[in-house]
Amino acid sequence: MDVRMKIVKRAVKEIEDGMYINLGIGMPTLAANEIPEDFHVMLQSENGLLGIGPYPTEEQLDPDLINAGKETVTAVKGAAFFDSAESFAMIRGGHIDLAILGGMEVSENGDLANWIIPGKMVKGMGGAMDLVHGVKKVIVVMEHVNKMGESKIKKQCSLPLTGQRVVKRLITDLAVFDFTEQGMVLTEVMEGATLEDIQAKTEAAFTIKEGLQ
């Protein structure tokens, strides 16, 4: 299984029946296809849809119906459309249960950087800065190291932040960490990884959950 799908499959276990969920663009969006069929969950799209359905068939294709990644989608039974202020009212107001977002860097106190690399073209943060503060539980999914093999889990983020102390749980291809009052805690070693490997590839300081390994 490829690394990204391994992360996605673990992230899907965070989804509970009955939840209202926002999935970020990219890897998090892949989680939508892995949600158990007997679960009733409603996926929110920041541009104004609660209840994202599968991609349309050619016949169903509708330019007036897209997701936050600007892809054409459908709406499920029970879906609702609304304007952008309403959309972020439900996000900021704490009505969304879970957000799964991508990351560039996460720090040991739960800071997240995922919107800009200085020196590269400015694209913008979209809704990420609103999501990290409003949603009840923010989970970040990302590869443990970058293309140069360097840890993306830092003592302090080197990139400009999306939010401070906003990440509740981080899922990588090697490990799962929780961010608690006592700091960052390793709670799971992913299949195929070892504790030594995780320690070598993690710049941030962390403790190990009691009883793990």
Partner: peptide
């Protein structure tokens, strides 16, 4: 009504 990312399923 141009579409930026046309995504469809079979």
């Amino acid at each position: 009504k141009r579409i930026e990312r046309k995504t469809v399923r079979a």
